[in-house]
Design a protein around this nucleic acid. Sequence first.
DNA 1: GACGGTTTTTGATCTACATCACATTGGAAT
DNA 2: ATTCCAATGTGATGTAGATCAAAAACCGTC
Lengths: 282, 282
Amino acid sequence: MLPALLQTLGTSRIKGAWFTRYWKGLRAVYGENAPPSWARLPGARCRAVEHLTKLEGLQEFEILAGLEEGFFQALAIASEVLEIGAGTALYREGEPSGAVYFMREGRAKLYRSSSGQGPGKARDQILGVVGDGSVLGLASALEGKPQSQGATALTDCVLYAVFRDELVNLMASYPGASLSLARALAARTRELEDLVGDLVFHSAPQRVARMLLDLATEEGRVTKRGVVFQPSLSRQEMAEATGISREALSRSLSRLAQEEILDLTGGKTITILKPAELRART
Amino acid sequence: MLPALLQTLGTSRIKGAWFTRYWKGLRAVYGENAPPSWARLPGARCRAVEHLTKLEGLQEFEILAGLEEGFFQALAIASEVLEIGAGTALYREGEPSGAVYFMREGRAKLYRSSSGQGPGKARDQILGVVGDGSVLGLASALEGKPQSQGATALTDCVLYAVFRDELVNLMASYPGASLSLARALAARTRELEDLVGDLVFHSAPQRVARMLLDLATEEGRVTKRGVVFQPSLSRQEMAEATGISREALSRSLSRLAQEEILDLTGGKTITILKPAELRART
DNA sequence: GACGGTTTTTGATCTACATCACATTGGAAT
DNA sequence: ATTCCAATGTGATGTAGATCAAAAACCGTC
């Protein structure tokens, strides 16, 4: 591979070179040695927690189940407990990857922004909504590249934050941990593939139906009338998760309400009256 | 989380439950213990290769660079050298994950199919085109789930095949290997995120331009007239990679040729006459 | 309660792209 | 060459969903 080729095409063989540009921009803001990500989170409180409490908390993570005692001890020492309020950005796209976060409690959205020209024109695409027990920022941390996605808390969250380098060191010492975290990454690739498939193969109403079912699965509870839930996503965000415009989402929902598949009259709460019917629309 | 909820919604909290259905179908065909994937590849030749040769070959993989001698020894013992012809399906979506493949030589496409009703209606979406030095089927192998994607050789390929379980064992013994492979997975998630971003943020002509640049970066060479290459993808496949219809792709290309950005008169070869201009269309 | 601002809904229009139908090309087989 | 078949190109048409514009609902504040 000749450098001439890359120069002529203006591309780079290393995928995501695009981010490097971003990163350079951010280095200008944050300086060469970026401060630990959470040190500059506006809504964050870094809580001092006893070692034993941290240890117990970490051992509850399903993805870490079965790992050696020594690993948990080390991870507890390396991690800080972090509390952030709903709406706080945990990290932004293009920012240097400083830490990895284990979500103990709360929900967050992972998203990507279009570098859309002109202010007010930028669009977001939600890549996933994650809850208790997930790992955030792992991929970028392993690659040692800037964040490929943004993460924002949808509800108040409690997280364990671990510095990138410390996690990598831990992974190098505890093979089981690497394997578990690799599995977590594998699960994310599958979810992303699902997303791609959904986007290209299904129509907007179908995607809306699926999105509702997914949300309800995570956030709903069964009642006599159907499945009731208060979505953690605004309509705008639902549209971003579905990959359509806010207006189109609104119309889809109205349509489903009109057909008495949904009940939207409850203010912020949504009731799925006919789950089977909704599923059939997938 | 109540089972009642899952049952009412007809969903599953475990993402990708969909594949389990596929898998069950395939078990009916292949039986409970599926034969090693490559044993039933029609166009495959399993070549007996000396240990030392395998060892050297494996050590050339960039993603494995710097790992311990012992790991390479073990991997060489565990792996088989496989040759498959252009067009051979390495594995299919939904098939039980039997092995992981290290691509030594050749190019392959990773894709997902729509479960489109009715024959002749099924569509494919190409998730990526990979070349020398890539790992195929790793994510599904780690998850221990059926393949979430299909892989088909675009050119004749030489691969090292390793049984799923053997690779997992190796990873558990050599932490460095887990870490390296986790990095490979991280890179794939980034590429998938790029794909999602591309699909939702950019128009068809923009995606075509990017696809051409990406292909040319991998397969092109610089000449006086511009960058020349023989795409490993057919027009149909280019369309699938871009997420548009074959007709739309054709029109896009014609348009670019008309504007003298491309030269398509060379039969199967494409010449990018004005790389900068093409890049500007991104 | 009335008020201002944000978020959501509804309506009307416009367009990019899919789809269908058919023409053309190009390459393998003979 | 000639024939055949698959792959590709082009033209005409329809439509899903974006976009623009404006009304309506919601929400906190006074």
